[in-house]
Design a protein around this nucleic acid. Structure first.
Length: 444
RNA sequence: GUGGCUAUAGCUCAGUCGGUUAGAGCGUCUGAUUGUGGAUCAGAAGGUCGAGGGUUCAAGUCCGUCUAGCCACCCCA
């Protein structure tokens, strides 16, 4: 073989997922998918590449610099790798009006690409896991989104998390109440958004630096940091801002949302209002959600909310939409942190390794492997002529729980010996009972 | 885009004030054990010290350049 001249390495910010990792990732994906299906969300898949023009003008100037372009020699179309899953959804909704019945509930778990500088937990290729309801304007839809979040996290094994709920309209109303609008209001959001990281004092200092009046800051901080349980928080705000139509509308929506959540039976310990939660920028128009896993020492694992003006972009109209995205990469990290994978999820799917004693017994070993596979046992046949010890070591290293030993003695007597590596237990059985014995070793 | 840190064996890292032949743990391979993995013991392989310059009698070690990686900021998942 020629010596490889090229150092094997990955593009910046991209990863390989080796089999042991893939088993874990697919476990998480499958649990989340189960919950989506339970709520009537159905899968959508769109191409990795979109026309460049489809993506332009949707994310803002700064974000557009992070879009990967994908040209080939002589290509006539300007193509780009998708930047998220929401714009493709908007395109699909506009493109297939006859095939899509509203409300349209779809989910998509797919990679997206951003040419950012990689960092801890941030990659240039990463999976997004979105579920959205297109064409439903009521708070029952938003409540359903929150329910999906809670159900999925519970199913994965998390039990100490909080879905933080706020309303974009309420933040706007607070700005009005304090006398801040336009560009300063956007900066105000950005500062408040850092609440988790820098605390109340940090936010206060940043607002001072941004040149806001001390009195204004005091009014805002008083409102957003009020520490009252659930609904009482809303009543407190109403006392100050009851005269502002935007505030009334926002508070009404949140009351409505909670009523639907209660009806759906979601335990109240898993959600709460957090008036300091802002959700990045721009396109949200109503309730917003963000979930933190407590004691995780990490940012949010889920974000979402209502965005009524984005999905209709390609149709030139407003289509009420609410949805959410799991920070699925972070969730996968936390699954390890909190040890939430089931023990049955070992490093391999393979359940049995059939060892091969010698060249003469290989045909018989193949027959045995075939019999085990016929009984739905995931079976690897050892494919090299090596010493028995090395074959067993191979099973041990991969985490295969059972090995079959088929030497001349066993073949002569029509039997096969199985060994369970976990505890070294050996069982000899007739070939007719072989599969049954393996299932016994696997399940006890 | 801005700033900081790092680069030595497959992996994680040590290497003193610049001084002879470059070190450990883990992993890999061989054997102890020709029908049995892990544990133990004995041994072996494995290095352009990121690249290319400079200072010096002498550079893994000091200086600047480049490259790559990591971290923080901006922003985001």
């Amino acid at each position: 073989m020629p010596k490889p001249k090229i150092e094997p390495r990955l593009p910046k910010g991209m990863r390989d997922y080796l089999p042991g990792t893939m088993l874990k990732r697919e476990y998480v994906f499958s649990k989340v998918r189960e919950v989506f299906h339970l709520y009537g969300f159905e899968p959508l898949q769109t191409p990795v590449l979109e026309l460049h023009e489809t993506l332009m003008g949707k994310y803002g100037e700064d974000a557009e610099k992070l879009i990967f372009n994908a040209q080939h020699p002589g290509g006539k179309e300007e193509l780009s790798l998708r930047y998220d899953l929401t714009v493709p959804l908007a395109r699909v909704v506009a493109q297939y009006p006859n095939d899509i019945a509203l409300p349209f509930k779809r989910y998509q778990i797919s990679p997206v690409w951003r040419a950012e500088r990689p960092q801890k937990g941030r990659y240039r290729e990463f999976y997004q896991c979105d579920a959205d309801i297109v064409g439903a304007s009521g708070m029952d839809a938003d409540a359903e989104i929150v329910s999906v979040v809670i159900s999925a996290l519970l199913r994965l094994g998390f039990d100490n998390f909080t879905v933080k709920i706020n309303n974009r309209k309420l933040l706007t109303a607070i700005g009005q109440y304090a006398g801040v609008e336009g560009e300063p209001l956007a900066n105000l959001y950005r500062s408040i958004d850092k609440f988790d990281k820098v605390g109340a004092e940090g936010v206060r200092e940043e607002l001072i630096t941004r040149g806001l009046d001390g009195e204004v800051i005091a009014k805002i901080m008083d409102l957003i940091t009020v520490d009252l349980p659930g609904i009482q928080k809303l009543a407190y705000l109403e006392g100050f801002m009851g005269d502002f139509p935007a505030a009334c509308e926002a508070l009404g929506e949140l009351r409505d949302l909670i009523a639907h959540l209660q009806a759906s039976g979601m335990p109240e310990q898993y959600y709460d209002f957090d008036l300091t939660m802002v959700r990045g920028l721009s396109y949200y128009t109503g309730p917003i959600f963000e979930t933190v896993v407590n004691e995780a020492g990490m940012g949010s694992v889920q974000g979402g909310g209502r965005y009524n003006d984005l999905i209709g972009l390609f149709k030139g109209e407003s289509i009420p939409t609410t949805g959410m995205a799991f920070g699925i990469e972070r969730i996968i990290d936390l699954m390890d942190t909190f040890n939430l994978y089931p023990p049955s999820l070992g490093g391999t799917l393979t359940q049995a390794l059939v060892t091969v004693f010698s060249g003469e017994t290989r045909f018989e070993a193949e027959r045995l492997a075939s019999e085990l596979r016929g009984a739905e046992i995931r079976t690897e046949l050892y494919l090299q002529d090596r010493k028995l010890g090395q074959q067993i070591a191979h099973a041990d290293k991969k985490g295969i729980p059972v090995v079959a030993l088929l030497g001349p003695d066993e073949i002569a007597s029509g039997q096969v010996k199985f060994k369970r590596l976990r505890d070294g237990q050996e069982v000899t059985a007739s070939r007719a009972q072989a599969a049954e014995v393996v299932w016994g070793l696997l399940n006890t």
